[in-house]
Write a protein that binds this DNA or RNA. Sequence first.
DNA 1: TATCGTAGTGTTTTT
DNA 2: CACTACGATA
Length: 802
Amino acid sequence: MQNTDNTGGPDNRILFLLDKLYARLNVSQREAVRAVNGPLLVLAGAGSGKTTVLVNRVYHIINFGDICEARPNFGDPLFAREYEKAKNGDIPQTKEFLKRIAVNPANPENVLCITFTNKAAGEFKERLGKMLGKDAGGIWAGTFHSICARILRGHIDKIGFSNSFTIYDADDSKKLISQIIKDLNIDEKFLPAKAAAQAISSSKENRVTPEEMLTSSRDARQTLIARIYDEYMSRLKKASALDFDDIILSALVLFESHPRLLEYYRDKFDYILVDEYQDTNPSQNDLVLMLGKGKNNVCVVGDDDQSIYSFRGATVGNILNFDKSFPKLKTIKLEQNYRSTQNILSVANALIGNNKGRKGKNLWTSGGEGEKIIARRLYTQAEEAEFICGEIMRLSALGTPLGDIAVLYRVNAISNAIESSFIKNRLPYKIFGGIRFYERKEIKDIVAYLSLISNPADDIRLRRIINTPKRQIGEATLEEMTAISLKNRLPLLEVAKNSSSYPTLARACAKLERFCGLIGDLSDFARQNTINAIINEVITRTGYLKMLTDAKETDREEMVREFISAGLIYEESSENPTLAGFLEEISLVSDIDDYDEGSQSVSLMTVHSAKGLEFPVVFISAFEEGVFPSAMSVGEGNLEEERRLAYVAITRAKKKLYLTHTDSRTLYGFTSPSRPSSFLEEIPQNLLETYEPESPRGRRNYTGSPRAVYSSSGRGGEAYGKKGKSAPGGGNKYSFGGEPPKKPGGVDFSPGEYVEHKYFGKGKVVSFEKMGQDALIEVDFENGQVKKLMASFAKLEKSKKP
DNA sequence: TATCGTAGTGTTTTT
DNA sequence: CACTACGATA
């Protein structure tokens, strides 16, 4: 016998040391860390510590390589002695010993880690940094888009784009498509730009070319879309612009047309790791296969039960059929959960068990059962919101930090009702989602100037800002310029530059030349100044800041200042800051306002945005048929995805979970009766604590009109949440507190009076209109906002003239 | 050309 | 309800 068995499995002594090193991981996690050789699929349930696995795996790859294949000579007495020392020694000693017998440990720059979000990439890099020190810096870690962009920056000229290409976001590409529809004389009513954009994006996600789309087209509309798609691609190329889908597609095209380049990257990346694989679309899957097929050391991590982005082209098939691409695929399930109570997990397991297309997992925890899940029915959404706030105040009083609590909903529209209760109760909250920083008009405008400076062929950005601020360059002029640009195959900026030579532009000539002069000056300026200086120059020279100041757009001004500091941060954090680099970063980084764990406020967000997060206390609101599951998805036969979404929502909760639903729901201005989500019936009733409103429905007046909550203005917090108050006209239906009676007499104002509001400050009453028991009051606040408020809600205090 | 008023239209959205 | 996108006016 040799010193090891010859079955090809790892040596037991090495395993012993690895177990010691990874003592904090469970058996499956350890297996997933050390199985570095060959393709691996890790099915990681929610809260199963998959990031820990990924980080440790990279650590393992870089330090020990494929150490499980090591066959060191334990027969050598000297070596055996060292092994004994490591076996009985401390962790650093163990590590040193293992490093000595490592098998082909990888260089950091030969490891590729792909995530979906910048946030995940950032977290990943941070944890790698802690574990690996300086080695972490060399690793290629980033999102699909940033990795591809990095490759494309060096090589996209090989397929006819400039290496300093521009990235278009969804808004830009929709504008371009809209322009094409106009230019092709298509009626937007027949084919809205949005629909075309959607169809084109979906084709790109599935790697369908315009030609393929045209040949497979079955109706006039489809043919039209194919033509638009074709034209769209050629215009993007002319502008040297890529949309989000193109960033992936172009990498594929590049590799397919340049096999030696592909070979280079295949050779470079010894190990590939991909997180959240259930969210990949076919293009991204192809990219992983393309790069991974050389060495086959591909590890993909994901959870088929958490696939919730099919509407964006993601397909669970990529994870379910991964073994078709890699027949020797090894699969490891991580089912032990370190996040939630067993009750929460059982609810999640029961629900997701009703889905058919899945690999099948059963989450469990070694922690306790925990509390039951609270299912609460309420009559109206106002009461639902009050219930949620009441519970939050109760928990808060018992010591739960507000930052530990989240309210989740299926659609953003639900947040309104909940938000108003938070305001009313003066509970600090933060709404996530909605308009993101880089999608704000003013930010996009400044970015458009910067883009045009760095890429003069960017017609879409030129269109955006040529008349912002107003330069008397109107629709007619732009139309004429477009015609010339199409005829002579020139970018719009070139047309503007030569406007004197086109008779049709004679009238606008001076204005156009002035605009070109401005862009030219800014380009010159940009060549020899810092990002910060460039941004400042842009906002002053273009008159943009003045425009905001003159219009008293203080909010927007503030956003522009925020943008200036974003530029500064980029400059300070980047080793080689360039304008193009800054523009790329802001195209690929969607939000600067991320979820902050230390925040002392309740988080309100959609279930989609909550993915990857966890909270000790979670409320899932509007758990109603038609909302969750959404009526649209049910109609399209996507019930399984809705169920996965509910599964994601439930598994966010660590300790306490509430499911609330109402009898009536107002959405998009229409109020309709609602019934509990069918998902509620799929949950074992013994895990639920169900609360019904105590008083029968007819006894109360559910007009939905807001009721007074504070009888006196001023100090907050005392009026709601105290026990024992009866609701008007009925018994106390909450076990958590009722509504105090209102005093209509306390809210009486007349126009011209000065008032003070807790949040908005001082202001002057513009109008006052009685509405039943309440009144609608319009106030012009000193901060420039004019607000219409329900007098009883507003908690206004009379004030002296400022 | 700019602005104002109204008709239309609404999931989810890591990049 | 709330927001945008477009068409009629000044």
